[in-house]
Design a protein around this nucleic acid. Structure first.
Lengths: 212, 212, 212, 212
DNA sequence: GATGAATGAGTTTTCATTCAT
DNA sequence: CATGAATGAAAACTCATTCAT
């Protein structure tokens, strides 16, 4: 009986995995708006109406992806920070900027995180999400305590807010589509797209001056 | 004949004005996704099918609103910078942060600017938009030259990019909906929403250290 | 211009006519529940989405049919009552019962009138309907005044209420489907379905004793 | 073995009871159309798919409720008629009208009895239902024989038919929803809803004149 | 018997867009 | 230029029902 229950739960988890995977793949190819539950269902072995047994809306699916991505990013950062023997201001900023660049899916998602994903999901799911994010914020806080022991708690919180703000802002300005790039060059022929990691690193480095 | 043509153009301009005004009002009340050409038409004296004579998609309407807002922000900044007798680093950052806060419509729009608006409009319109934005960028560049005469051109460009990145990032994190706020407080009872202007000012001030 | 407007309105009226006619035909063949806007659209030259320009729900369509049927019944009654030279209690009851029998569509509709049709339509439409019904009730009242000059106003109102109650009740018990009839005969082999007109006439005749 | 079978049957009966009870409660709150097997299952401890082991359709559930209600009404009537020392025409009519009023669930159900419930159930179940109703009709017939000993059998049958017709007709006209009442008052400000019991009593009293 | 998963069919509804006038 | 009619496509959602366990 117990085993049976476990089996069923793991089956449900596997279903959710499949849905998430399909959604991730779709998101690689097309934009957030273009994704519908219908499309997601098509990419799985699950029929559309059955998806409603696992997720109410596509936003809830994306919320799960977002959670996963944030936590993966956290793992990346944690690992590199632990391996970092320099413990310097610049190595810290570099690790954050680089691990961010290596999670393009997360970067793309962050831009719709607050404006779209969080709008159309139930309060309950959103609260769960926020709770799941606690380890992420804690890791961030602790790493700052280690690297910048003289910083105030308040300054560290501000830094985190600004760092996360910069991620979405810089990403959307450094990942232009063909059309956007073309329009930019038409209007300003000398335009060259800045590099995400470099720009992010520079900004972080400057902002850490407040933590010394 | 010539007069007739002019009349027609001014009429068309008036139509566009009406459409824009209706769209702005709608945007005050509801979200970007919830706005459709149908809804916009309802708020004007123009019928839905007629709107197509002036704008191809709702994104083009928003592009016009965006242009208008950017240029209005530019005017605000220009005026205050000219009146500013201190010419100090802090007064500069304050003026930018404060004028930004006074354009909530622009702040709300910036979050969908790159991810939604620019995606669904013709290359031609987008190029026009980018060209119209030149005065905005130039004003920004020139003001930096005045306030930070020792800065390099490259540093100034980076600063502008980061400032604009921060605007959208900070805004989306400091303008949570009821639901978002509730979820935040459920997960982290001590959470208090930071103030947009203060946070933006702080960040700008730190970033200007690179321009000294 | 005026003519143009008129043309358009008559076109809309023609469309509504077509929808109503299709709905009536469907209702001849299948049950109320089995009728959907999709089915109605199929039976017209109008596409489904276009129907929404004329009617919001199928209930509103049926409300129009109901109105039409009640007024037609009123015409039937009025005409026969005017032609009636006997002016007797029995001729009155006979006319009501017979004209009712000749409007099977109305009889079938009355059984779903209060329980289904009026539930799912807007207050506005329902109020319009109730207003349109005034001539029907007035005709009824006036005819009673003529045939039963000694009756009190209160008694007349009660009679009307009871007559209308009987219509729906008697109809649903005298118009059994094959299956219902079969079940009845299985349970009670001697059962024979009463005749609607006769039963209704009998009841009316007895009830008019109160009006003498 | 035998005991085992009995146990099972009583268990099945208990299940049916639970389903019926849940359905009754639902019907108190919402309309017939709004009730689905899904909703019923939600209100029980039984899962949706398991309900099919007890009832094929929701109509069969309602048929059981209907049977129960008719027989309860019969008990009410029988008891009061036995206790009635007057044995008068008016006391008879009063008992019928009053006991009817005290079974609002039955009154609400009768309006969908013939038009909805009997349509979607198997012939077998319907026949069973009709057979179960025999005691009800017999009680009615016998009570008429007692109170109106001079009446003919035919007249008594007609009276029963008319009484049952009136129940559903009067009920649907004296139990208007908020919306219906509002629409009525908009169209005819002086409208007041008649009382079910009084109206029904009046009608019955008049109709019994045929039985004297 | 009991359960949850799964499915397929069906309906309502909304919109962008085109066309004739 | 302006309009209302018309259309087709698509999305969300619900539900009865079946099946494996």
């Amino acid at each position: 009986m117990n085993c049976c229950k476990e089996k069923k739960e793991s089956l449900a988890a596997a279903r959710r995995q499949e849905i998430i995977r399909a959604c991730e793949e779709l998101y690689e190819a097309v934009d957030y708006d273009a994704i519908s539950i219908k499309e997601i269902a098509k990419s799985t072995s699950i029929c559309r109406s059955n998806i409603y047994n696992y997720y109410e809306t596509k936003e809830e699916i994306f919320l799960d992806i977002l959670k996963k991505e944030y936590l993966l990013w956290m793992e990346d950062m944690k690992k590199l920070l632990e391996e970092d023997s320099l413990r310097s201001r610049s190595s810290y900023c570099r690790i954050i900027a680089r691990t961010a660049r290596h999670r393009p899916r997360l970067l793309k998602l962050i831009s719709v995180h607050y404006v779209s994903i969080e709008k159309n999901c139930s309060l309950e799911r959103l609260t769960d999400f926020k709770k799941s994010m606690e380890p992420f914020w804690n890791m961030f806080r602790e790493s700052l305590t280690v690297y910048f022991p003289n910083s105030s708690s308040e300054k560290r919180e501000t830094f985190i807010l600004l760092a996360m703000s910069l991620v979405q802002g810089i990403y959307s300005m450094t990942s232009l589509s063909e059309k956007q790039l073309c329009a930019m060059k038409c209007a300003n022929p000398g335009y060259t797209q800045p590099d995400f990691e470099d720009t992010f690193y520079q900004a972080l480095y400057t902002l850490t001056s407040e933590l010394l």
